[in-house]
């Protein structure tokens, strides 16, 4: 470390202003992005038509809704609510089971480190399709094909679960620790034995965790499938909103929130036990 040149460097710096270096180094890019974003925001906000008079009117209804939350009405439509919730839960459980069972082979196939290329591409294709289509659109199509009822909802949720589970599962398998897997391979195990001993133990806890998470998601999604006639609590909820029966709607929403919390709680316990 020579002191002379550094000292002069210091002399140069003393008294100069210091500015934090920008996140984006190139000024034209930085300002381009900032200005572009501002222009977009202005255009976007100005293109939103808000009928403030209508919104103002709505505040009263909003207040009514909040009041309804304080005094939810479980009683007057109890049979509808009970049947709807039960149907939602049934669809949730059945579709999660089927979705998980199908997603295991697809997840294995979509993991580059254990599947041959053609299988990999096929499975990744299935995942891409399943993830690109939202539940509600799939439900609309399936209702058109299979008719109204929980079967369409069940199929929708199973289909959506497959994409979700397989993708995460495949990523997990791809990121497994190679050493234990190789050690198993070195013992002369067959492919199935290798997956069973080398990969499965590492991935299984995650699989359980993901299944519980998906159960939770499926329940939340099942609540909207009724809007398009695919069964579940959504139909009852929709009717309640249509009739402005906020107290019944509030009761249903509270049940949904409560069920989601219960599911999260249970899944937390199960995940803790598996890991």
């Amino acid at each position: 470390m020579t002191t002379a040149p550094i000292a002069s460097e210091l002399d140069l710096l003393i008294g100069t202003k210091w500015k934090k270096p920008s996140f984006i180094q190139r000024p034209w890019l930085r300002w381009g992005l900032i200005i572009g974003f501002v222009i977009y925001l202005i255009a976007a906000i100005s293109s939103v038509e808000v009928n403030w008079a209508r919104v103002y009117e709505g505040l009263e209804r909003g207040a009514a809704f909040i009041k309804a939350f304080m005094a939810p009405d479980f009683v007057s439509r109890w049979t509808d609510i009970r049947d709807g919730m039960l149907e939602s839960l049934i669809m949730t459980v059945a579709s999660t089971v089927v979705g998980v069972l199908i997603s295991i082979p697809i997840g294995l196939g979509a993991a580059r480190n254990i599947a041959p290329l053609p299988v990999y591409l096929l499975c990744r294709g299935i995942i891409a399709i399943s993830r690109a289509l939202q539940e509600i659109i799939v439900a609309i199509l399936l209702v058109a094909i299979f008719g109204f009822g929980p079967l369409a909802g069940f199929l929708t949720l199973s289909f959506a679960s497959i994409g979700f589970m397989s993708k995460l599962l495949a990523e997990d398998i791809e990121s497994t620790d190679k050493v234990p897997a190789e050690a198993i391979k070195a013992t002369g195990a067959s492919w199935l034995q290798w997956v069973n001993y080398g990969v499965q133990p590492q991935v299984f806890p995650r699989l359980v965790g993901l299944s519980m998470y998906r159960l939770d998601i499926n329940f939340r999604e099942s609540a909207i499938l009724g809007l398009v006639g695919a069964g579940g609590i959504g139909a009852t909820l929709n009717t309640a909103f249509d009739r402005y029966e906020f107290d019944t709607a509030a009761a249903i929403l509270i049940l949904i929130i409560g069920t989601v919390m219960a599911l999260e709680y249970i899944s937390g316990i199960i995940r803790a036990r598996v890991q």
């Binding site: 939340r220 609540a223 909207i224 809007l227 909820l237 929403l253 929130i257 919390m261």
Partner: peptide
């Protein structure tokens, strides 16, 4: 817990 479609309905 509540889907955006339900929020939209509300």
């Amino acid at each position: 817990s509540i889907n955006s479609l339900i929020w939209a309905l509300l």
